[in-house]
């Protein structure tokens, strides 16, 4: 006589025994995959995208037509101040020779002197960036050393999304500028516009960011808005690049 209940229990035991190797194998594969993914992530994090940043020598010049209270607190026109910029990642330091020649570190203006300079915004300008206030005096790079902040990407396997994430985390304006430039170069003008806008909101002294912002607007068909933005920026910074771009836009309009 067959004891069915005992046989069913034995069958369950048999099935469990039979499944154990599969479960172990699946767990092993899962653990292996997790380890692999983890190590891949680690590798991605450990060597950050090698961005070489050249620190420009900047000259703080007063703006002749700036508001009176601004003039009062802006350092004298001859004052040259190096502007140390916090790099988000590996920074290519200047060579000793460059440092000895160009760098004469002086104390930055005290925080009390950093009175925000509000930009007057036309009412029909819907830009957020324009409404941002300048928290530092307008910085104009000298013509002779008009080297824009450049971030050079050496790796071909870099991921723009990773840099975007980093920018979200640390709000470094140089990263923002880099991303804006990247998108502009790749024809993604709305993204370039957005990142330039964000960058300007964080740091409104980066000329290239303003230029990318304006050029993106032009590419997006909002030339008038680009012109107004450039005019505003020129009024604050006397940027030659901005002037040149504005002239070009005006000439094109006249044509």
């Amino acid at each position: 006589m067959i004891d069915i209940h005992l046989l069913e229990r034995r069958w369950i035991k048999y099935k469990i025994k039979r499944l154990i190797p599969y479960v172990v194998a699946i767990l092993g594969i899962g653990a292996g995959l997790i380890t692999l993914l983890y190590s891949v992530n680690q590798n991605d994090v450990t060597p950050p995208p090698p961005i070489k940043q050249e620190i420009p020598l900047v000259k703080i010049t007063p703006k002749p037509d700036i508001a009176e209270e601004v003039i009062a607190i802006v350092p004298p026109p001859t004052l040259q101040q190096p502007r140390a910029v916090a790099a988000p990642i590996a920074v290519a330091r200047p060579t000793p020779a460059e440092t000895s020649v160009a760098w004469k570190p002086k104390a930055l203006p005290s925080p009390k002197e950093n009175i925000p300079v509000p930009l007057s915004i036309p009412k029909n300008t819907p830009l957020v960036a324009v409404s941002a206030t300048f928290s530092t005096p307008v910085v104009v790079p000298p013509n002779s050393q008009n080297k824009p902040i450049s971030i050079k990407q050496n790796s071909t396997t870099f991921d723009i999304h990773e840099i975007e994430d980093r920018f979200k985390n640390n709000s470094n304006p140089h990263l923002g500028l880099y991303i804006a430039r990247y998108h502009y170069d790749n024809g993604n003008y709305s993204e370039a516009y957005n990142y330039a806008l964000k960058t300007n909101a964080i740091n409104n002294t980066l000329e290239e960011s303003w230029l990318i912002f304006a050029k993106s607007l032009v590419k997006l068909g909002r030339t008038e808005q680009a012109k107004k933005t450039l005019q505003l920026y020129i009024s604050q910074s006397n940027s030659e690049g901005a002037k040149s771009l504005l002239n070009n836009l005006t000439k094109e309009d006249e044509k």
């Binding site: 067959i2 046989l7 069913e8 034995r10 069958w11 048999y14 099935k15």
Partner: peptide, 8 residues
């Protein structure tokens, strides 16, 4: 049931 018979 075939497996149970196999066990049996």
């Amino acid at each position: 049931y075939i497996e149970m018979a196999g066990i049996q």
